[in-house]
Design a binder for these strands. Structure first.
Lengths: 113, 113
DNA sequence: TTGTTATATTGATATTCATCAATGTGTTGG
DNA sequence: CCAACACATTGATGAATATCAATATAACAA
């Protein structure tokens, strides 16, 4: 089981904005249409559309058209991937590295250790 | 218990880069010094220092000086804050909003609903 | 088909980000 | 003190980001 760090970084980046992380958390309540989401923020409609595109492109959020409206929900599969990665992180108390480097990093040249 | 979305976004942003999320995961193994971390990446020492500063500023990573070396570990308290937030997110299947907006968003003017 | 509402896209812009080379700072050994 | 090593900071730069105004697109209702 290989870790896809590029994907983890992309998921984190999608949530690395206050507006987007609020929207994501808001969707815990259930499906929301864009106009309802917009009510909660002091941003323009085009900016919201931009943020929703980022959330959807990351895979964290699904959008579906319902007539005039776009309705958004959390994508449970991608959420699970994120949860598993985060929960797999541990603050280990292992002993320190003893043997560190011997090199001249000014020149980016490393000698034998 | 109030949610600090600004902080959540800052934590996510700190991990929203492939190099940084790899470093963070690597620290699950235990304490690592900067020169050891540097071995695993094709970046310069100054770039690594920049990334370590971002990780430390976010609170996710602690650094301590040990003589010549800087040794880094995961900060368990901040990790716990992140875990609790992520694990609190759920992909709810609640019913949809029925009443959406009535307004002219071209003008950013909203009428009575 | 025409007008209205909801959402997406485009173009412009100011800001932030990731990166490197160069240089500065701190620590240790001799 | 001086030289060597580890790490931090600075300055420069190209790329990415967040935002808005303006406009386009899509769906529906009458």
């Amino acid at each position: 089981m290989h870790k896809d760090y590029r994907n983890y970084a992309a998921l984190m980046k999608a949530l690395g904005d206050e507006t987007r992380v609020k929207i994501f958390d808001m969707l815990t309540q259930g499906e929301r249409c864009a106009c309802k989401i917009l009510d909660d923020f002091a941003i323009t409609q085009s900016t919201l559309s931009y943020h929703m595109k980022i959330l959807c492109d990351s895979g964290l959020v699904n959008g579906r058209r319902d007539g005039i409206w776009m309705r958004y929900t959390i994508n449970p599969d991608t959420l699970e991937i994120l949860k598993e990665f985060i929960n797999g992180i541990e603050a280990s108390c292992n002993e320190i590295d003893i043997n560190c480097c011997k090199g001249d990093q000014r020149l980016n040249v490393f000698m034998v250790k």
